[in-house]
Amino acid sequence: MSQGLPWGDSPIDLPEEEPGEVKFLAPEDAAELEELQAESDDTDADMGPHERSHAWQVPGVRAGLGWVSGGVAVSTLALLGLNSHALANWADQLPVASVTAPVVSAADGWHDTAGALGLNAVVDAVEGAAKAMRKAPWPGQKPSGGDSETPAPD
């Protein structure tokens, strides 16, 4: 991770991962760095030649690329099975053409199959609950039909 943005200014910065350990340099390594620092607006310039460790050199900081890739892969595969609604909605919005027709038919077919297998149950249940919650009246208020408008309470 870069130090271009001061540490802590991004919401993804965790204090324990701050690449802040200062390593003082030997004179031969320092000369080159001093030239670079002289050109930059380094607030730590008075500390003498030094460099800050990279994030991956901070003790205890674990790499996250494999972990997040695995998480995204699991989630994507699970969603292909459990969220055929999104696939069908996307396919239905494609322009009508001979190229898109098989895509639309495959997406709709998978949506039907997933429904028959009970894979759409989670989304269907949440949709049903959301519909009921949208229609829920205030205590003492008569439930409305199709028209949700009611007179204002006094």
């Binding site: 993804i12 991962e17 994030a55 674990r62 790499a63 996250g64 997040v68």
Partner: peptide
């Protein structure tokens, strides 16, 4: 803030990855 990041080889910590997912 961004140019120095573009010039570096990127690296992803698990903390940065997990807070990114939460966001």
């Amino acid at each position: 803030h961004l140019l120095p990041q573009l010039r570096e080889t990127p690296w992803l910590s698990r903390g940065a990855a997990s807070t990114s997912l939460v966001l």
